[in-house]
Amino acid sequence: MRSIVAGITLVVLAVALLFAAVSIPFGNPAMSDMDDYFIAHGQEQTSANNIVTSIVFDYRAFDTLGEACVLFTAVFGVSVLFRLRKKEEDYEYE
């Protein structure tokens, strides 16, 4: 029963995704005002040649701050999971 429901969901999603894939025009994005502004003015506003870097570290730097915090949180979580336990401190699950 559960696998039948999952299969029906997958088939419906497959039809929807494949229909969307053939109907979106590739290579001609409809709205590109923001990106054209970045390409036209990014070099004189940040004086960096690489527009992607100037977006990552200047225009959308708050995004990068959040990304750095996510990476720090992941490292913190892994170090909590694998911290060295003493022998008698081991959890008992069985």
């Binding site: 590109s32 990106d35 970045f38 977006i55 990552v56 959308r60």
Partner: peptide, 15 residues
């Protein structure tokens, strides 16, 4: 040039 904003978003997504 291609659109740069989606590439910056993808960089964040990869991290």
């Amino acid at each position: 040039m291609v659109m740069p904003t989606v590439q910056a978003l993808t960089l964040t997504s990869i991290v």
